[in-house]
Every structure is written in structure tokens, then in C-alpha cells.
């Protein structure tokens, strides 16, 4: 951390649906110090240079998941990516890959949100326990089985990284498969059977070709590739066990 101020060129992808036929790049010169994030660079542009630049942000502490951008071609949370790491070269900021652009750096999140809603991301019980009977017991070891997968902040960086999602937007994708696994792996949940069709579907786990770039870019170490792989095993077991159990394996 130093107080020294330097200047860096930020090249931003611009696109306005009311005016532009195609996206283009615009460059801005921004002062920065060692602790200036890419997000703060964009905020400087917005406040001081060009009020029309559009991007999402909120918490600026890497937990709300709003500010994902392509920074020099790699998906990053712009609040925890720092201009110092690109200087003295210029840095290029673009909207997340594989999503339609709404305006400038803001992408359309609706496909992700629809997928999230489709996989039953909540605890399903055959019989609810009354609140008066207290909490369910869950040992630290049981918690550890899904904890990491519950840490996803829905920033969608893994979708921008996933070549399969780029080729086939129907693919459920890393974060959604992690979320599905998070509930299937929770000792309190009894809804696995209802979710297995999403896992087994062509656009479920079998859409993944094991590139693993999703886990590399994940800012929260959720390791979605691991969730997908565990579910490939589950899906295979589900397939074979179906021939052995009249009820279907996922119910057992």
C-alpha cells in the first residue's frame, strides 16, 4: 500500500441498445494507487469523466456477486481485482462472456435466474418437523459435505469461463449444478429424487466436458467442477440402480 498516484488506461466495451448497432471500445485515463480496484477505476470514470458508462456493483467486498466483468479476457469480480496488476499496460474491461449485453458492462442475468429457480434449490422434506421441536441435528462432518457448495455468490464468473455454456446455453452450468448438489448433499434434505432428473438430463452434468476452468475463476473456492463430477457419479449410480430398485435409487 502506497500513496503514490499513477495513471492507467482503461479500455471499456461500450454498447447502448438504443443507439449502437454494434459494441465498440472506449478508452479512459484513470489515476490509481496500489489499492485501487478495477471497480473503483470504473467508478472514477462514471463520476468524473463519463456519466453514461453503465455497470453493476454493490457491496464492493466480494460477497454480493454483482460486479463480475471480463478483465483482460478473464472473468473476475472487479471489486477484488486491482489496477496495479495491469500497469503499465492498459487494461481492457468487458461484460461477462456468454451472456447477452443489456448495456455496456451489464449483462442479462435472466437465463441464470431461471435455471436457479428450476432446480428446486430449497430443503424438501417428506414431513416437516414443527418449529417447537427445535433444529435438526447436523454434525460438523455433515455440514462439511455441502458447506463449500453453499458458498456460491451467484456471480456467474463460472458461466463466463465455461466453454460448454458458450456453445450450448441450455447447459445448466457450473453454479447451478453446485447449488443442486448443495441441497442433495445436505443431511436435512429428502428431495434428491426430485432433483435427479435435472442432473441426469443431457443439459445436466453430462453437458460438462471437464474443462475445469469454472473452478479456476471461482472467487469463493466453491469448486463447481468438483460438484459436477460428484454428480456424474450420482447420475451413473442412479442409472444403474434404477434397474435394481422398484422405487428408484434416489429415494433410498
Amino acid at each position: 500500500m502506497t500513496e503514490q498516484r499513477r495513471e492507467i488506461e482503461i479500455e471499456v466495451l461500450r454498447y447502448h441498445p438504443e443507439k449502437d448497432k454494434a459494441p465498440y471500445y472506449q478508452s479512459y485515463t484513470v489515476p490509481f494507487s496500489d489499492d485501487t480496484s478495477v471497480l473503483q477505476g470504473l467508478q472514477y470514470i462514471k463520476d468524473q469523466l463519463d456519466g453514461s458508462l453503465t455497470f453493476r456493483w454493490s457491496c464492493r467486498m466480494a460477497v454480493c456477486g454483482s460486479c463480475g466483468k471480463m478483465v483482460d479476457g478473464i472473468p473476475h469480480l472487479s471489486c477484488k481485482t486491482f489496477l496495479r496488476d495491469y500497469y503499465p499496460r492498459k487494461v481492457r474491461v468487458e461484460p461477462l462472456n456468454h451472456f447477452p449485453i443489456v448495456r455496456d458492462l451489464a449483462v442479462d442475468q435472466s437465463d441464470f435466474l431461471q435455471k436457479l429457480a428450476s432446480i428446486k434449490p430449497y430443503i424438501i422434506r417428506k414431513k416437516e418437523k414443527p418449529l417447537s421441536e427445535g433444529t435438526y441435528l447436523q454434525t460438523p462432518a455433515e455440514l462439511a459435505r455441502y458447506k463449500q457448495f453453499s458458498s456460491c455468490i451467484n456471480c456467474m464468473l463460472c458461466y463466463a469461463a465455461c466453454p460448454q455454456y458458450g456453445l450450448n446455453p441450455k447447459f445448466a452450468g457450473p453454479a447451478i449444478l453446485s447449488l443442486l448438489h448443495r441441497y442433495n448433499a445436505d443431511s436435512r434434505d429428502e428431495g434428491k429424487a426430485e432433483r435427479m432428473p435435472f442432473v441426469n438430463a443431457e443439459d445436466g452434468v453430462w453437458g460438462c466436458t471437464l474443462v475445469g476452468y469454472c473452478s479456476e475463476v471461482c472467487p469463493k473456492k466453491v469448486d463447481p467442477a468438483n460438484a459436477v463430477n460428484q454428480n456424474k457419479v450420482n447420475s451413473t449410480m442412479d442409472y444403474f440402480l434404477r434397474f435394481m430398485s422398484p422405487r428408484g435409487a434416489a429415494n433410498s
Partner: peptide, 22 residues
């Protein structure tokens, strides 16, 4: 407490003691 318990039933990953209680 009732609300914390409700959240637990809805799946909130509360940190646990060794015996499984929140």
C-alpha cells in the same frame, strides 16, 4: 429463536457444535 430455528429448517448452514447442535 423461533426464527433462527425456522431458518435452520429452511437449510441455513449454521455453524455447529460437535454433537450437531447449532
Amino acid at each position: 429463536t423461533e426464527e433462527m430455528t425456522q431458518l435452520e429448517h429452511w437449510g441455513c448452514p449454521w455453524s455447529r457444535q460437535d454433537d450437531g447442535h447449532t
